[in-house]
Design a protein around this nucleic acid. Sequence first.
DNA 1: TGTTTTTTTGCGGGTTTGTGCCGATATTAA
DNA 2: TTAATATCGGCACAAACCCGCAAAAAAACA
Lengths: 248, 248
Amino acid sequence: MLKKERQAYILHQVNLHNRVLSADLSQEIKVSEDTIRRDLAELADQGKIVKVHGGALSQGYHFSLNAQQVYSLDEKKIIAQKAASLVQDGMFVLTTGGTTIIELARALPPGLKATFFTGSLTAALEYMRHPSIEIILIGDRLSKNAQLTVGGEAQARIRQVKADLCFLGTNAIDTTHGLTENDWEVMQIKKAMVSSAQKVVSLTISEKVNTAQRIQVCDIHDIHTLVTELSPDDPLLKNYIREGLEVL
Amino acid sequence: MLKKERQAYILHQVNLHNRVLSADLSQEIKVSEDTIRRDLAELADQGKIVKVHGGALSQGYHFSLNAQQVYSLDEKKIIAQKAASLVQDGMFVLTTGGTTIIELARALPPGLKATFFTGSLTAALEYMRHPSIEIILIGDRLSKNAQLTVGGEAQARIRQVKADLCFLGTNAIDTTHGLTENDWEVMQIKKAMVSSAQKVVSLTISEKVNTAQRIQVCDIHDIHTLVTELSPDDPLLKNYIREGLEVL
DNA sequence: TGTTTTTTTGCGGGTTTGTGCCGATATTAA
DNA sequence: TTAATATCGGCACAAACCCGCAAAAAAACA
């Protein structure tokens, strides 16, 4: 069997079954696993498949629906960078969704071994591109507005977790009303996250600092750390430091 | 034998078998391999065949250039169309993930009011674009291979549901081994879905019919309906009708 | 017909490609 | 943690390839 032929066959199998094992192919085509591995590597270089340990996956599934233009992306990248530094190996981390969280996902160091809990589809999709973190998806009814699972079941699951960290993509925060939201169901989810985490981190672009919305998620003192794109000594953040928050 | 004759013969052989080996031809026509090679090179220059190391392939065989699209999309659209007609207002529907299921999501009639349960991120994302269906995300650990939630928790949640319908994006099916998979964790999820649904529907492009993989999900008789892109009276499907399956 | 010219072919070499094997390392699962 | 499995890098060997040349064959021509 010619090399091209073999590779065509392999590509076909991958597209057909989404996943193939080198060992299976080797037995099927009667060539050594090394050869299969080399074929898979070549096909992966050409971008036709995705190589994984032990075999390969089809490319078709593996593109994420990204590239939506993000509002004030640069600021969010700075926030993400700061926030990522808080995550240590072995931690359990709760996160909401939103564009800032997605930037956080991208900013995680490649070798990190931690477990992320989220009810956000887009966040989960982004976490999946990371090679070594584990992802626990929180199930329940999917809110089309929030792109997030909401409901009692989700809250119950969140409360089961004893998380080290909780990252909240924040819509509005000020010292008198605390962290506020405009969606009842999202509020409930965030509330559950706040109460399940040792340390609560709010990721907020400075534009949203000192603004409030209708529904309170938690008091300002329930937040331990505030991350913005500004320097910690920026006057805008003085109030929060006075209230005892750590500001990055 | 004249050069022209020989090349005509070679071209004929290539088109007939899709591939030829220089060594074989050399022996067959009783000329040196160098001559064969030169012939193949000429034919390749004229664009009549594709030269590869060791021989040559026919034109059609080398169609691989950047098929970034979903594999056999048209077939899947037909399947999706047929499957969508099974869903009625008010139904509870369990589904796996995969490209065929995504096509199903796109084929659902806009006014449909039903509840879809899935552990697949990509499927959930597609369902979210539908205006009126409700989506319940099944939570648990996200398998990066399968792009699906897997694990005991997910299985337990699935078993809680009394679903009317279950759509399985199917990897391999045949009458003796039933529905088979290549991933242990995915098998468990599908198994749970099969046992929780009144009616189990397997969505399978005909290429996968009568193939098997390593791990059995369920017996052929646990499947009630088989949907392929073929007409129900296609001979390939006769066996399944004989086994008592409904074939669409 | 015989001779010259052109084309085609086979062969000897050195080079490249494809494959399998082995030992060292990395990754995964229990 | 350990054990099992997969991967990587290097090596070896055979098969295929390329190049140049000269013999052979075919074609052209006197």
